[in-house]
Write a protein that binds this DNA or RNA. Structure first.
Length: 272
DNA sequence: AAACTATGCAACCGCCTATCC
DNA sequence: GGGATAGGCGGTTGCATAGTT
């Protein structure tokens, strides 16, 4: 036996929501709060599936939803997060206040995703490569290196503000300057993140992006057996984007790792 | 001005996971 | 422990609108 549908299909409205339905749903949630989606339509007097109500609320009616175009900063952040997470839209959306997973998914599919398969002779001037942000250019210029984590929970995201510890630990194999990827200096990817700072509530400058996932009972950082530097000199809490102090370790994806595919030992995480 | 095409986005579908009993 | 259920998620569809011929 399969599971029963969330609602009987007969007699339910489908398709676009009317202003009246929106008002009913808004008013009901204002009074009773979210949740109990299956019962909600009956209680609120809506001829809609509970799932449909939930979706309408989360993607459209919620008061904190940000409307309008995705900014370049947001695009940069989406690209960087997508590079790490793949199509984990809800996780990505969690880093963009006011944006829903649906919005980001749509944006990706209709904008960024298309750029990846774009032929050079497209007519639209808006799709000229000159209009791409540095992060987009870098993404387009480099092979996608999405890490498929199977993460069940994203516990922490940090912007690492520590300067490279040049003086303390001399490099055994010093790298001369940042590597360029297909003509783009990796600094191109650094700048947007600095610009994103207000978006992610950090005053820090720096390029490293840190994230930790819980993978079943383990953390990705545990699986990789990786040592990480201290997040910041001073109070790391000021640099937290989301605070859920669970793990003792935090996985660091530095720009260098991202740009050079230097994710040692992560083969089994990556696409076949 | 009409027909056609491309684009953007809201909404739906089906699967998965967490939770409850 | 296992089945049932609710909620969440990602993929896909379909429609309205904008742009092009």
């Amino acid at each position: 036996m399969g599971r029963s549908p969330c609602c009987a299909k007969e007699g339910l409205n489908r398709g676009a929501w009317t202003a009246m339905e929106d008002k009913i749903l808004k008013d009901y949630i204002k009074v009773h709060g979210e949740g109990k989606w299956r019962d909600l339509p009956k209680r609120a007097g809506l001829k809609r599936c509970g799932k449909s109500c939930r979706l309408r609320w989360l993607n459209y009616l919620r008061p904190d939803i940000k409307r309008g175009n995705i900014t370049r900063d947001e695009e940069d952040l989406i690209i960087r997060l997508h590079k790490l997470l793949g199509n984990r839209w809800s996780l990505i959306a969690g880093r963009l206040p006011g944006r829903t997973d649906n919005t980001i998914k749509n944006y990706w599919n209709t904008n960024i995703g298309k750029k990846l398969v774009q032929t050079p002779n497209r007519k639209s001037p808006s799709q000229s490569k000159d209009n791409y942000s540095p992060a987009t250019k870098l993404y387009l210029s480099a092979e996608s290196r999405v890490v498929h984590t199977k993460a069940s929970r994203c516990t922490q995201v940090f912007i690492n503000t520590t300067e490279p510890q040049k003086s303390q630990q001399p490099e055994p194999n010093p790298v001369v300057g940042p590597p360029a990827v297909n003509g783009f200096n990796r600094d191109d990817l650094v700048d947007p993140l600095d610009k994103i700072s207000p978006l992610v509530s950090t005053d820090c400058e720096g390029s490293d992006f840190l994230i930790d996932f819980e993978l079943d009972d383990k953390f990705l950082s545990d699986l990789l057996n990786t040592d990480f530097p201290p997040l910041c000199d001073g109070d790391a809490d000021t640099n937290k984007i989301s605070s859920s102090p669970i793990s003792s370790q935090t996985l660091s994806f530095s720009d260098e790792m991202l740009n050079n595919n230097n994710l040692q030992g992560m083969d089994w995480f990556q696409d076949q």
